[in-house]
Nucleic acid binder design. Structure first.
Length: 154
DNA sequence: ACTATGACAGTAA
DNA sequence: ATTACTGCCATAG
């Protein structure tokens, strides 16, 4: 068990995204400079979520539920809220987080919709494309095709 | 300080 | 498998 609350340090030693150009504050005072969409400072809990999600490797996905359990606080719903406010998308790979029942989940504020005609849920379609590009496949129903293979296991 | 609102999840029908 | 309803907890207003 690690003490997840102390998000000011941590994580950051992973190398998964070292080649990304986007600046992501790994900790300390620099994080105070970032604001949420509504102009508020990002909370420690939000940072904790971003730090965790950032570790999900390409080709794998996890669930909202798993994130809050791993962090040791919050709820799946609050995790979703953090994602929604994610100012680092798509650097923080929020597209690699799906619902607990392996449903595609949401993206950029839109939930679900697997309509193939694209009548709704354009953002989710995009999420689907990104994951497909990473090798993660879904059924035409909108559910993860092979959870055993694609769910990220630490 | 308080109420409303979600990128969820568990349960029941 | 899908819908409906309820608990959840962190933000937004």
């Amino acid at each position: 068990m690690m003490k997840a609350m102390d998000s000011s340090v941590a994580v950051a030693t992973r190398t998964d995204f070292t080649k990304c150009k986007v600046a992501y504050p790994l900790g300390g005072i620099k994080r105070d400079a970032f604001r949420t969409k509504s102009g508020k400072k990002l909370s420690e809990k939000q940072w904790a979520v971003y730090d965790y999600v950032r570790k999900i490797p390409c080709g794998k996905v996890t669930t909202y539920k798993h994130v809050c359990l791993a962090l040791g606080f919050g709820s799946p719903r609050s995790v979703g809220a953090a994602m929604r406010n994610n100012p680092f998308a798509p650097f923080v790979p929020c597209h690699r987080v799906v619902a607990s029942n392996f449903y595609i989940g949401g993206f950029f504020g839109e939930w679900g919709s697997t309509k193939e005609d694209g009548s709704a849920g354009q953002q989710c379609k995009r999420k689907l494309d990104m994951l497909t590009q990473e090798g993660v496949t879904f059924t035409n129903n909108g559910y993860l095709s092979d959870p055993e293979a694609f769910i990220w296991k630490e």
